[in-house]
Measured scan of single mutants.
Amino acid sequence: MEVVDPQQLGMFTEGELMSVGMDTFIHRIDSTEVIYQPRRKRAKLIGKYLMGDLLGEGSYGKVKEVLDSETLCRRAVKILKKKKLRRIPNGEANVKKEIQLLRRLRHKNVIQLVDVLYNEEKQKMYMVMEYCVCGMQEMLDSVPEKRFPVCQAHGYFCQLIDGLEYLHSQGIVHKDIKPGNLLLTTGGTLKISDLGVAEALHPFAADDTCRTSQGSPAFQPPEIANGLDTFSGFKVDIWSAGVTLYNITTGLYPFEGDNIYKLFENIGKGSYAIPGDCGPPLSDLLKGMLEYEPAKRFSIRQIRQHSWFRKKHPPAEAPVPIPPSPDTKDRWRSMTVVPYLEDLHGADEDEDLFDIEDDIIYTQDFTVPGQVPEEEASHNGQRRGLPKAVCMNGTEAAQLSTKSRAEGRAPNPARKACSASSKIRRLSACKQQ
C-alpha cells in the first residue's frame, strides 16, 4: 500500500481520502468484538498479612480480608486513616479506646483483636480482627420478611446475652447493641463488635452510672431520649438488646419516626405494640426488656430465667442462610486472597510482582521504634555504632529488605517449588510478632 504524507491529507475531501486508502487503516468495530484482558491483581503485604478484597466500608474506614502468612488464618483488617478520623467527632479517641478494650477481652461471643499495625509515614492504622463471614443486618436484609425464624432468632439472642453478660462482668457498657454490630462466623457463632462508643466503668465505681451516649437513635432507651444527665449503663444495653430481639423476630421496630426528633419523642413516651403472632412468652420477655422505668427493666439474670429464653424451640421454618457475597455473588464466600496468593505462588519472584506497604510497620504502639547501633568497621576489626531503624520486634528492616532482594536475584530452581506461605513470609520485609 502506498504511504501517504499526513501533511497532504488536509487537502483532500472525505471521498478523496477514502480513495487514497484511509479506509485501510481506520476501522470501526462493535464493542462486543473487544476482548478485555482482566487487570492483574497485584499482591500487597502489610507486615506478614497478605491483603485481599474489600469486605465493607463504614464511617471510620474500610475493612478488607487478609491472610496471615505465618498461621494461614483468615483475618479481617480495619484500615483507618488518621486524616479521616480527625474529621469525625471523637474519632481518634474512640478508636484508641476500642483498641484498649479489645486487647483485654477474651470471649467467644466478643470479636477478638489479633494485631494492631501502624504506618507512621502514611498515617494509617490497621486493626487486624478475627474473620466473620457476614453481619446479622446483612442476613436480615437478604430476606423479604426482614426477620429470622424463632428457632434461629433464639439461638442468636442467647449468644448475644452470653457476650453481653461477659462485657458487663468486665465493667464495660457497649451502648450500641444492634444487628449491624453483631457479626457471624461460618459456624454460626455470634460476635459482638464495634466497641468504639463503649465505656469502661471505673474499677471502684459504686454502680453503672453513665453520662454520655453515642449509640444508634432507634435503639436508645427513654432515659436517653428524654435527655437525662445520668442513667444506668447496663440497663441501656438491656433495652438495646430488647429492641434487637423485637427486630429479628418481627422484622419491625418498636419505635419509629420520620426524623430523629419524632423518633425520640415516640421513644420518650414509651408506647409501642407487640405483634400478636409473637406469642405470650416472647411478648412477656419483650415487655420486661423494654420496660420504661430502668429500675423495673429486666436484668440479665431475669432474662436467663425467663421461660422463652430457657425453652427449646424446634425449627418450624427453614433458617435464613448466609447470603452470597454482594460484589462477586459467591454463595460460598470464598477467600478473596486466592488470586493474590496464586500471583505470588505461580509467578517468578520479581520485585515488580508484589507490593510491600512499607519497609517498617510499627505494631502494638503509636510511637516510632527505637534505634540500635549499626556496626561500623574500624582499624582493629571492631565496629562502632551508628543508628539503624528496627521493627518493634527488633528485626532490622533494611537488612531483611536487602537480603530479600538478593535472594530474589539468585538463580535457584529449587526455590520455585516452595509453598505459597513460605514465599509470602520471604517477601515480607518486616516480620511481626
Rank of each mutant, 00 (worst) to 15 (best):
G47A: 11
P6D: 15
G270D: 13
G56L: 02
I29V: 15
E121D: 04
E375W: 13
C418D: 14
I29S: 10
H168F: 04
E256F: 05
H345S: 08
N94T: 09
R104G: 02
N412T: 07
Q123H: 07
G135E: 12
L353R: 14
I177H: 00
A406N: 14
E293M: 06
K329F: 08
M129G: 05
S216N: 02
T395Q: 12
G180V: 04
K108L: 07
V116S: 05
S19R: 04
H107T: 06
V320P: 14
D277G: 08
A273S: 03
Y292S: 09
A76C: 10
E98R: 01
Q220W: 12
S422T: 03
S325Q: 11
D352W: 04
S378D: 13
Q123L: 03
Y292D: 07
I99E: 15
S193R: 00
P6E: 09
E14D: 08
F157G: 00
D194I: 00
A398K: 13
C134G: 03
P6W: 02
R409S: 06
Q137T: 14
D30S: 15
G163P: 00
E165R: 08
E265C: 15
Q214W: 04
N119G: 05
Q382H: 07
L286T: 07
M392R: 05
V390E: 12
P144G: 06
G385S: 13
G268C: 09
N181K: 00
T250I: 10
D141A: 06
L427A: 14
K312M: 12
G56R: 01
R383M: 14
L80Q: 12
L17Q: 15
V20C: 01
K48D: 10
R42T: 04
K403L: 09
S404M: 14
E199V: 12
P321V: 11
Q364W: 04
G394Q: 10
G61C: 07
C418E: 14
I267G: 03
E165L: 02
K388M: 11
P275N: 11
L341D: 14
K124A: 07
G381W: 06
E342D: 04
I111P: 09
K269T: 12
G233C: 11
D330A: 08
D194H: 00
M289Q: 01
E65P: 03
R331V: 07
P254T: 05
I46R: 05
G15P: 15
D348R: 08
C210G: 06
Y362S: 09
M289R: 00
D352Y: 05
H306V: 02
P369D: 15
S69P: 06
D229V: 02
D352A: 05
L344D: 12
E33C: 07
D350Q: 12
I322W: 08
N247A: 11
I260S: 12
Y253E: 06
Y131A: 03
L286W: 08
E357P: 14
P324G: 10
L50M: 04
K124S: 02
V66K: 11
V173I: 13
K311G: 10
M51L: 04
P413H: 15
M18S: 10
G15W: 01
A414G: 08
P369F: 09
R405G: 12
K81Y: 09
I172L: 03
F157V: 00
K78G: 01
G346S: 12
L55G: 13
A76G: 07
I111T: 03
V3L: 03
T13W: 01
H313I: 12
E57L: 05
S232Q: 06
E407R: 13
T249N: 03
K191F: 03
L80R: 02
T249H: 15
P413E: 14
F354M: 13
E293L: 05
Q159N: 04
E396H: 13
R301A: 14
C418T: 14
K296M: 10
Q112L: 07
P149A: 08
P411L: 08
N181T: 00
Q305T: 12
F366G: 13
G61Q: 05
S419L: 08
Y156E: 07
R297D: 01
G215W: 01
G163T: 00
K48R: 11
C278P: 08
N90P: 06
E317Y: 06
R74L: 11
M289E: 00
V128Q: 08
G10Y: 08
C151R: 06
M18L: 07
G385P: 09
E375V: 09
C278L: 06
E376K: 11
L190S: 01
Y362H: 12
E120V: 07
S59T: 10
T249L: 06
D68A: 04
L183T: 07
N90W: 03
V372P: 12
A316F: 08
S232Y: 05
Y292L: 02
D141W: 03
L285F: 05
G188S: 06
T71S: 03
D355L: 14
K269A: 05
K97V: 06
Q137G: 03
V337F: 02
Q364A: 13
E33W: 04
G385F: 10
L55P: 09
K403G: 12
C151N: 04
E120G: 09
G52C: 12
R333G: 12
N94M: 02
E376W: 04
M127E: 14
T402G: 07
W239S: 00
N412A: 13
N109T: 05
Y292T: 15
H345T: 14
R331P: 13
P217L: 01
L282K: 03
L344K: 14
I361T: 14
A347R: 13
M11L: 13
L9C: 13
A198V: 11
S334Y: 13
R405N: 10
S404D: 08
Q214D: 10
D30C: 12
V34C: 05
E120R: 04
E256R: 12
L201W: 02
S404N: 13
S213G: 11
V372D: 13
F309I: 11
K78S: 00
G288A: 05
M335H: 00
V337Y: 05
L54V: 03
P179F: 01
G233W: 08
M136P: 00
I424N: 12
L245T: 00
K388N: 13
P339E: 02
D355H: 07
P373V: 04
E121I: 11
R86E: 15
M125P: 01
M51P: 15
E293R: 02
R409A: 12
I361V: 14
I29W: 15
D229W: 02
V66C: 12
P280G: 12
V320I: 14
P339C: 14
E374Q: 04
K82R: 15
P149I: 01
S334E: 13
A241G: 04
G227V: 03
V77L: 06
E98M: 01
D284S: 09
D327C: 09
T230K: 09
L101R: 09
S334R: 03
R40K: 06
L341H: 01
P203L: 09
L182A: 02
L190W: 01
S421E: 14
N90I: 04
E65I: 04
F354G: 07
Y272F: 09
N226T: 09
G279P: 08
E57Q: 06
R211V: 10
T212W: 11
G91K: 01
K388H: 07
I274C: 05
D194Y: 00
G346L: 11
G227W: 09
G171W: 13
A414R: 14
R211L: 08
N247R: 05
P323R: 06
A398Y: 09
R331C: 11
H168N: 01
M139T: 08
K124Y: 09
R383E: 14
A410P: 01
E138S: 09
K44A: 14
V338S: 14
Q123M: 14
D277T: 14
K84N: 05
R74I: 07
R103T: 10
S213F: 10
G188M: 00
P294N: 02
C73P: 01
G346R: 14
M335T: 12
G15T: 15
E376Y: 14
E342K: 15
D258Y: 12
Q137I: 05
F264L: 07
F234C: 06
A398T: 10
G52M: 00
T402M: 09
P217G: 13
N380H: 12
D162S: 09
L201E: 02
A406S: 11
P294M: 07
E199H: 11
I192T: 00
N119F: 08
K84W: 07
Q220E: 02
R75D: 15
V368H: 06
N90K: 00
A225V: 09
C73E: 15
K262H: 13
K312C: 08
S404E: 10
C430F: 12
E376D: 01
I111S: 02
G187A: 07
L164I: 08
I161E: 00
C132E: 06
Q152E: 04
K41C: 12
Y118M: 15
A377E: 00
L102A: 04
A218W: 03
L101I: 06
R103V: 04
H345W: 14
A43V: 03
H168A: 09
Y126V: 04
I46S: 04
D176T: 00
G288Y: 03
E407F: 09
N90L: 06
S378M: 07
T395C: 15
E349Q: 08
Q100F: 05
K388Y: 06
N380G: 14
K431S: 15
K146L: 07
F148G: 00
